[in-house]
Structures are given as C-alpha cells and as structure tokens.
Simulated assay, not measured.
Amino acid sequence: MGGPLKDVPVEDELIPVGRLSGAWGVGGAVKVFSYTDPPEQIFEYQPWRTDGSPGLLRVLGWRRQGPRLVAEIEQIPTREDAERLAGLNLSVPRSALPRPPDGRYYWRDLIGLEVENREGRPLGRVRELLDAGVHDVLVIDRPGPGVDHLVPFVRGRFVDSVDLKTGRIVVDWQPEWTDAE
C-alpha cells in the first residue's frame, strides 16, 4: 500500500484504489481489479495515477464482463500494451475520494494505528488489512518475535473502538492469541 508522500498535503496523499490485472480480448482492453466497495466505484475516481509508466491513465469506457471489470484506457491502445502494464497499481489523490460517513474508514486510515486490548495491553500496529470475504481482518505487527495478530474487523464483537485522532484501536483480543496456536 502507498504511504504518505514527503512534503505532500494529506488531502493529496495517493490512495490505492486498484490494479491492472491483465489484457482482455484482442484489442487494448484491460482487466481491472478494484479495491473499492462496490467495485464499479473505481471508475468514479479519475484519472488514475500509476506506480510506473505511463503515470496517468484516463478511462475511455468500461463494462462488467461476468465477474470482471474491463476498461478501455486512452494510454493502452494494443493488447501488447495491456499485457505489459499488468500488475500496475492504481491510485488517486485522497482529495478525489468522498469523506467516509461517521463510523466508516478507508483502509489506508487504519494502517499504522496502535492496537491495544480492553485491558490496555499493547498488541502492536496495524500493518495491513485483508479482505477475508465475510469480514475484513486487521494484520497487526506484534512487538518483538512472534506471529502477527490477525483480528477480525468486526465492530461490537472484536473491535470496540477506532479513534483516528489518537491513532488507537481497542479490541477484544489477548496478546497470547495468535493464528499459529
């Protein structure tokens, strides 16, 4: 995931929204893997910035093709171009995204927050979130040696509170609980 850029205002921080996942068909169409919910929402945030050449991508049109999202992109005229750009990450400035409603968060906002349990015992920092289908999972770097904590991001069951201002998440979890046990 992209992090804050040095000397860039927070509202212009690049937020990952998806990636190109390969060519589609015989022309220059590309498969798009979206991180947005719903997935089609990725097309509302334009232009996309890439983590490599060509830099900016402008979508000319898109469609759902079965379970996939397929896009025609101005800078990708041929199948060979589409194949070459597979795996390219797509981001937009934070200022292009709507403000999340109260009690909702962008995954990026949770990365780096300190996590402690109800007793105030530190569990570590959020390194990433995983989409586990039914619910998201916090991956928490455990201080010192050991296996990372994998805590289901289920409010009211495992997650008691998220405070972006203080940079803290309180969970119903014990330090000795790991996925390896």
Rank of each mutant, 00 (worst) to 15 (best):
V134I: 09
V134P: 06
V134H: 12
H135S: 13
H135A: 13
H135V: 05
D136Q: 14
D136H: 14
V137I: 15
V137L: 13
L138D: 05
L138P: 08
L138C: 03
L138T: 01
V139Y: 05
D141L: 11
D141Y: 04
R142H: 08
R142D: 00
P143D: 03
P143Q: 06
G144H: 11
G144L: 05
G144W: 12
P145C: 00
P145K: 10
P145V: 00
G146N: 09
G146S: 10
G146A: 09
V147Q: 04
V147P: 00
V147M: 07
V147L: 06
D148G: 00
D148S: 10
H149L: 03
H149R: 07
L150Y: 15
L150R: 14
V151D: 02
V151N: 03
P152Y: 09
P152M: 09
P152W: 10
F153Y: 13
F153N: 13
V154P: 01
V154E: 13
V154G: 01
R155L: 10
R155C: 00
G156A: 07
G156Q: 08
R157G: 00
R157A: 11
V159A: 06
V159M: 08
D160P: 02
D160W: 13
D160C: 03
S161N: 07
S161H: 07
S161P: 07
S161D: 07
S161F: 05
V162N: 09
D163S: 14
L164G: 06
L164C: 06
L164I: 08
L164V: 05
K165T: 14
K165P: 00
K165A: 14
K165R: 15
T166F: 05
T166R: 15
G167Q: 05
R168T: 12
I169Y: 09
V170R: 15
V170W: 09
V170G: 03
V171P: 11
V171R: 11
V171S: 07
V171Q: 09
D172F: 08
Q174E: 13
Q174I: 02
Q174S: 12
P175H: 07
E176K: 13
E176F: 15
W177D: 02
W177G: 00
W177Q: 11
